[in-house]
Every structure is written in C-alpha cells, then in structure tokens.
C-alpha cells in the first residue's frame, strides 16, 4: 500500500514542478536586482517601478483591460442567448456551430478574421480586436449557460407562466436569475481568454491598439528584460485571481 502511494506522490510532484518551475523563474527574476536573468543578486521593486512609469506599457495595459471587459460583456450577452438556444433546440449541428471557433486553431481564426476585416473595410484597432475575441469567447459562455439550463427544471418556467407571468417576465424573473452564475462564470472565462490572447490579437490589432501580450512580445524580440518578467508576473497574478473566483462560481464548467 505504502509504496504505490509514494510513487504516485513523487510522480505528481515532478509533474507540478515541470508545470510551475518556469512560472516561478519568471516571478523570482522579476524581483532580481540585475539586468541579466542569470543569477540572483538581490531583491528589488525597481522593475515594477520602471513598468509603471513606462507610458507604452500602461497604454497597453489599459487597452488590454478595456478589450477584455468589452469582450466579456458582449460574449456574455450573446453567449447567454446562444446557450439558451442550444438547450431549447437540442440540435447537434447547432452546438457544433457555436463551439466551432473554440476548437479551431487560433492562427486560423486570426488569419480569417484579418481577411474578413479587410474585405469589409473594418479598420484594425480596439474594435476589431474586441470583435475577434468575442468570436471565440461566445462558445465558452454558451457552454456554461447550457450546463445551467440543462440542470434547470423546465416546469419552473411553466409554473411562472401558469402563475401569471408573461414570457418576458418569466425570462427576467426566473430564467435569468437562475442562469446568472453560469453567465458570470462564462464571462470570467471570456475575460481571462481575452486578456491572455496573443495569436488572434496579433492578426487583428492595428497601430496604437497593442495589448499587453503584444507589448511583451515586442519587448522580448530584443531581450527578455526584467520588466518583461515583472509584467508577466502581474498578468499571471490577475489570471490566477480570476481562475480562483471562477472555480468558486462553477467548478464543473472549469473542469470541462
């Protein structure tokens, strides 16, 4: 009994190390008082100070937040409607259609969106990035909402109608409040995906609309500076907080 358990513990410890050592390195070096990511010299907040006085970086952060918020809100509304439709019509091809962009390779989505924006003469900038992010976030919200819907007793809506509520009232007073945890979970997922996204954003961003991941990439092209470590650490922290809150809201939608 004892031996297989020990082996299991060791194996999982190794896997976790593999997963988290690279992240830990970034965090550690973001506090390192040296230009080189080579050896530990001493603790410093210097790189964070530089980061917060770098106007380009701050602009990118602002862009990222605005885009992620807008993408989360938009895909929240659209994904909620899509999720309800998926539940109500129960067509296999319908869910494939909504979830398609989720499974599609990012590079493909990026290229095809770029072509589409060119075709319809939509200027590249924040708007185009938001639209692009919404396109692959709807599916996640729809999934979370659909899961809530299928856990919901259909007779609740009939009861509401029966007791005198119009279709709109029964949606507003019964369906929406019951779906809300699913919608919020989906929107947080969308926010996380949007703020992290690089590939799709790379194709759909215009001048002056660079997001944090794009900004980091352009800095790394020269060298992995400690500022990059610092901004990466902050981004990591934000994502971590979101994931924690998200898992509180609906553990099952995160697992799927």
């Amino acid at each position: 009994m004892a031996r297989p358990r020990k082996t299991l513990l060791l194996a999982s410890a190794l896997v976790y190390l593999f997963l988290y050592i690279p992240l830990a390195v970034v965090v550690v070096f973001s506090f390192n008082d040296s230009r080189l990511n080579a050896e530990w010299v001493g603790f410093t907040w210097k790189w964070y100070d530089q980061l917060f006085s770098n106007p380009q970086m701050l602009q990118a952060a602002r862009n990222s937040l605005i885009i992620a918020l807008a993408a989360a809100l938009l895909s929240g509304v659209l994904g909620c409607l899509a999720g309800i439709a998926l539940h109500r019509f129960r067509q296999k091809w319908l869910s494939a259609l909504v979830l398609g962009p989720v499974a599609m390779p990012d590079i493909l989505i990026g290229v095809s969106l770029l072509l589409t924006f060119m075709l319809f003469n939509i200027g590249l900038g924040s708007i185009s990035i938001i639209l692009a992010h919404v396109s692959f976030c709807i599916g996640f919200v729809a999934l979370a909402v659909q899961a809530r819907m299928s856990g919901m007793d259909d007779s609740l809506l009939e009861a509401a109608r029966d007791l005198g509520a119009s279709p709109w009232q029964s949606f507003r007073l019964i369906t929406l409040p019951l779906l809300l945890p699913g919608v919020i979970a989906g929107m947080m997922m969308a926010f996380t995906l949007s703020i992290d996204d690089f590939v799709v954003t790379f194709f759909t961003a215009g001048v002056g609309s660079a997001t944090l991941p794009l900004e980091i990439y352009s800095m790394v092209k020269i060298a992995v500076t400690p500022e990059v470590n610092a901004v990466s650490t902050l981004l990591m922290l934000l994502t971590l907080v979101l994931i924690t809150v998200l898992s509180r809201f609906s553990p099952q939608s995160l697992r799927s």
């Binding site: 007793d153 007779s155 609740l156 009939e158 009861a159 109608r161 029966d162 007791l163 119009s166």
Partner: peptide, 15 residues
C-alpha cells in the same frame, strides 16, 4: 396564453 387563464397548476416536481 397560460398566464391569462384563471387556472393554476400544482406541478409534480412542485416547481
């Protein structure tokens, strides 16, 4: 429509 009928239902699942 159901909401306009002076009829109420007790559902099997209580709802």
């Amino acid at each position: 429509p159901p909401e306009k009928r002076p009829v109420h239902t007790v559902f099997q699942s209580y709802a």
